[in-house]
Computed example of a mutant assay.
Amino acid sequence: MELTRENSRAMIYYDFRSGLTQKQCVDRMISAFGDEAPSKTTIYRWFAEFQRGRVKLSDDPRQGRPKTAVTQENVDAVRKLIEEDRHVTYREIQATLDIGMSQIQIILHEQLGVKKLFSRWIPHSLCEEQKAARVTWCVRTLERFHAGSSNAVYNIVSGDESWIYAYEPETKNQSRVWVFENELKPTKIVRSRSVAKKMVATFVSKTGHVTTIPLEGQRTVNAEWYASICLPQVVSELRKENCNRRIILHHDNASSHTAHRTKEFLEQENIELLDHPPYSPDLSPNDFYTFPKIKNKLRGQRFSSPEEAVDAYKTAILETPTSEWNGCFNDWFHRMEKCVKFRGEYFEKQ
């Protein structure tokens, strides 16, 4: 969103009417808008205007007022500064060209039509072969399961591992609270994530959570634990009512998942395998849905031990309604379609 002069003046007026000092107003504006904040001189000048009784926020009309600094030469100079450094700030542009902040805003937003955006974080810098592998897998899986409409989707069980921490701090967005006028701005002490943690393997299906198995007595998942302890519990849970139930296991390419010991167990139990393309957490139900959703519920809670945190994690999963798991798997197939559409690129927030 572009911060116009009227926007700035409205916020300065709000601070003035709220009883804040000029310095407090300056600090608040810089904290919220950084380099785009109006200068200290501007804020002090508008405080003086409001103290004299002014309530109009727009500029007084001035006939023939020339935009002397908005010249083609300056427009080209700003364009060059941006092309040389995409992080260049308002202050740096002002210092380089010696023109006013309002003229810089006109050049940036009206003449050049640029805006500052946060960079989009991606899991991995994909090469062309990896993009092609993602597309191939999506096309094959969409065909195999009729774009998610096949009843065979109900046989898919997707599993993955993740750390559960005794304490994970809230996100900045989660810490937002309503504040009444004239109340002090809320603060929170910055705390780091706990070092106490426990690895769990979680398995989910279109109808809900299947099981979550904590890793006991060791810190890393290996083929021996995965094939002799973890997967047998998954199979037991799935086939407790029907020993011949069809199971299609989906997991990623971790070494414990692709080991000979694991493949032997799957063959022995007549379990079909749905493989997974490398570097594709955006195509794994646990990675794009289960782990972020459930862990988000636990953020800000301090548990006495990793075991207590795992119990809370399990409880939160069990509270998730069946309709959400169904939606998760529907979204999974929509994601495959998006991956094909974007030719294997990471597609989230595009």
Rank of each mutant, 00 (worst) to 15 (best):
A147M: 03
L142K: 05
I107K: 07
L108C: 07
S175G: 00
K188N: 09
M101F: 15
E183N: 14
S119P: 10
A166E: 10
E161T: 07
L184V: 09
V139F: 01
V139E: 12
F118T: 05
T171R: 05
E128T: 06
E129A: 08
L117D: 00
L142Y: 01
E143D: 12
P123L: 08
L112N: 02
C127H: 11
Q111D: 08
T187D: 03
T136Q: 09
S149Q: 14
T141V: 10
S125C: 10
W163G: 08
I122A: 09
E170Y: 07
E183Y: 08
E129P: 01
V153W: 05
R176K: 00
V177N: 01
E181C: 12
E183D: 14
S119F: 04
I106N: 12
E183W: 13
R140S: 13
Q130K: 05
Q130E: 14
W163T: 03
K115T: 02
A152F: 10
H146S: 15
E110F: 06
V135W: 11
V179G: 02
L97T: 12
G100S: 15
R140C: 05
V157G: 03
L112I: 03
A133R: 12
S119W: 04
K185Y: 00
K172D: 04
S125H: 03
I104A: 01
G148R: 07
N155P: 03
N151C: 12
L97F: 08
N182W: 11
L117P: 02
I189C: 13
R120M: 01
F145P: 05
I99Y: 06
R140P: 01
I164Y: 10
W178P: 02
C138F: 00
V157Y: 04
E183G: 10
K131T: 04
V157A: 06
V177S: 00
H124V: 08
L142P: 00
C127S: 12
R134L: 01
Q105K: 15
E183Q: 14
D98E: 15
G159N: 09
F145E: 06
W121A: 03
N155W: 11
E143W: 06
C127K: 13
Q105I: 13
C127N: 13
L117Q: 02
F180D: 15
R176Q: 00
K185R: 08
Q103P: 03
Y165M: 10
W137E: 04
G113F: 05
W121M: 05
Q111S: 10
V190C: 06
Q103V: 13
E128M: 03
S175A: 01
R140I: 02
L112T: 01
L126P: 03
A133Y: 07
H146M: 14
L184C: 05
E110S: 15
D98G: 15
R144C: 07
